[in-house]
Amino acid sequence: MKHYEVEILDAKTREKLCFLDKVEPHATIAEIKNLFTKTHPQWYPARQSLRLDPKGKSLKDEDVLQKLPVGTTATLYFRDLGAQISWVTVFLTEYAGPLFIYLLFYFRVPFIYGHKYDFTSSRHTVVHLACICHSFHYIKRLLETLFVHRFSHGTMPLRNIFKNCTYYWGFAAWMAYYINHPLYTPPTYGAQQVKLALAIFVICQLGNFSIHMALRDLRPAGSKTRKIPYPTKNPFTWLFLLVSCPNYTYEVGSWIGFAIMTQCLPVALFSLVGFTQMTIWAKGKHRSYLKEFRDYPPLRMPIIPFLL
């Protein structure tokens, strides 16, 4: 059985960083990364991007050496992705923050609204209902991160945790300040508006959870398998008939419901920014589905049925 020789060059300087002799033909890129780490321990596998061309796409960890368009002496180019952190850690951090930050404003801890309001309670029912909904949303997200989601990528750049936390924590503080303010004004149409908004919120939260469970069942634990998601017997998953990412559709719907319930401008802005970002993600995933699966359902749109 022939063996391969693998040289790894710096993608920027073309400097030879490592030479691997007698590499098995069936070795994966993940195994080559581990061998590279032995000579350069500062670059652990998650930091490494190996590619066939200095400006090309990163090879997948599961790619097999003998199936790549290389000879028995293969040249790979290395790029440092920077310090990495696990997706689970990032999600837990960015979701735990809003949960606790919101509660600080809800309980009106000292130095927020003035001494005479310390630890007082709002007289408006919608304020307490909003706290329950907000807390439920982020507790749900935390539990899904721990027990439901299966991540195709193990890590992301460390800098992302600061960007994500600034976004989630900042908006949580902004909306919580106004919703729990002693001078907060309840919704214009009173109980009817709150009940309608609560119904929207609850339905969308159930829908979002149902989609996450359906997506989880598509991917076996520990794998990166991708399949076309289809509706199940659960009615909340029937939205798969019309959109590629109904989890985002339901998520946006939840925040629209919360915005109607609280009639709070920061919540509306958070919903708008979230919708914009999720639309970008949904379009990317939709394109990926179309590219990977020739039999992908043609009627589906990325996030909004028939429109977007």
Rank of each mutant, 00 (worst) to 15 (best):
C204F: 06
L81M: 03
Q193G: 12
C204R: 02
H40D: 08
I211S: 13
W255G: 03
P45S: 12
A30N: 12
D21L: 07
V148P: 06
R159C: 07
T188I: 08
Y178D: 12
G222C: 02
R123I: 14
A96N: 14
Y4C: 11
R51N: 02
T232P: 10
I304N: 08
K227N: 13
L76P: 06
D21F: 01
H124Q: 11
D217A: 14
Q84L: 09
Q66T: 04
H124S: 15
T166N: 05
Q205K: 02
Y4N: 08
L35R: 08
A83L: 02
T28N: 11
E15L: 09
A130P: 02
E251G: 02
K163M: 04
L92Q: 13
F151P: 11
K55E: 07
T93R: 02
P182I: 04
F19T: 06
W255C: 05
P182D: 00
Y102Q: 06
P297H: 06
T120K: 06
S86T: 14
K16H: 13
Q205N: 12
M175F: 00
H149N: 03
P229S: 09
H115Q: 09
T13A: 10
H149I: 05
W43K: 14
P305R: 06
K291V: 09
L68A: 12
D10H: 13
K33P: 01
P298S: 10
A199C: 15
L206P: 07
T120P: 12
F111I: 14
G222V: 07
L81T: 15
C133G: 08
F19K: 12
E15M: 13
Q193M: 01
H128V: 05
H134I: 00
T185D: 13
W43E: 14
E31W: 09
T279A: 11
K224D: 12
F171V: 08
S49P: 07
L183I: 03
E251K: 05
Y77S: 04
L52H: 00
T75K: 04
R51F: 03
L198P: 09
L99A: 13
L239Y: 10
G114V: 04
E62D: 07
K60C: 12
G154D: 08
P298I: 04
H286Y: 03
T28W: 06
F240T: 15
F236Y: 09
D10K: 14
I29R: 04
C131N: 14
T276A: 11
K16D: 06
T155I: 10
P305N: 14
H134A: 07
I132W: 14
L198N: 14
Y44G: 05
H212R: 02
W43M: 02
F111Y: 11
K2V: 10
P98C: 13
K38N: 05
Y102N: 00
T28L: 04
T185A: 12
V109G: 12
A176K: 00
L20N: 05
T89K: 03
F201K: 05
A11N: 04
P231I: 04
G71A: 06
T225Y: 14
M261T: 05
R294L: 08
T166P: 07
A27E: 13
P231A: 06
V273D: 01
I101S: 07
I8T: 07
A83S: 06
L92I: 10
T185L: 13
F201S: 06
E62R: 01
S49N: 03
P157A: 12
L146R: 14
P298Y: 07
A259V: 09
K116T: 13
L242Y: 13
V252E: 07
Y230A: 15
T155S: 12
A27C: 01
G190Q: 01
F306I: 11
V202W: 00
R14V: 06
F78I: 05
T39A: 12
H3L: 09
Y296C: 04
T145M: 09
C131G: 13
A11R: 07
F119D: 14
I304R: 01
R14E: 10
R219W: 05
Q84S: 02
N160S: 12
G190F: 15
F78L: 10
P187D: 13
L76F: 14
E31N: 13
V273N: 02
A11M: 11
I256V: 10
S122C: 04
Q193D: 12
K283T: 05
T145K: 06
F209W: 00
A259D: 08
L307P: 07
F136S: 10
T237K: 07
K22Q: 05
F201W: 13
R108L: 05
K2H: 05
Y117C: 11
L99V: 12
T93L: 13
L308F: 12
L242F: 07
H128N: 03
H40Q: 13
Y138N: 00
Y250R: 02
L17A: 02
P266T: 08
T73L: 13
I112T: 09
L272G: 00
P186A: 15
Y184S: 05
L103G: 06
R14Y: 05
P98I: 14
K233T: 11
F78T: 07
H128A: 10
S271L: 10
K60V: 00
L198G: 07
A259T: 12
H26F: 02
P98D: 07
Y189N: 13
K12E: 11
R79C: 13
V127F: 07
C165W: 07
K224M: 12
S210P: 03
S86L: 00
I8E: 08
K291W: 03
Y102F: 07
I304K: 05
V90F: 05
H212P: 04
G154E: 14
V194A: 10
K22W: 05
F275I: 12
I179T: 09
F111P: 12
I132Y: 15
L307V: 12
Y168F: 00
V109M: 12
T225P: 11
Y4R: 01
S254Q: 02
G154K: 14
P298T: 05
P41S: 11
Q48S: 14
T39S: 09
R300C: 02
F162V: 02
A30M: 02
S58P: 12
S210G: 04
I303A: 04
L196F: 00
V109F: 02
Y113I: 12
L290F: 14
H212C: 15
H3P: 12
P220T: 06
F136M: 15
I228H: 15
T249I: 07
H134Y: 05
K140S: 15
G154R: 11
D21R: 04
I85N: 13
L92V: 06
M301F: 14
L17E: 12
W255Q: 15
Y95Q: 11
M261N: 03
K67F: 08
L104I: 01
I303T: 06
F19P: 02
H3G: 08
V243S: 07
I32R: 06
V23L: 09
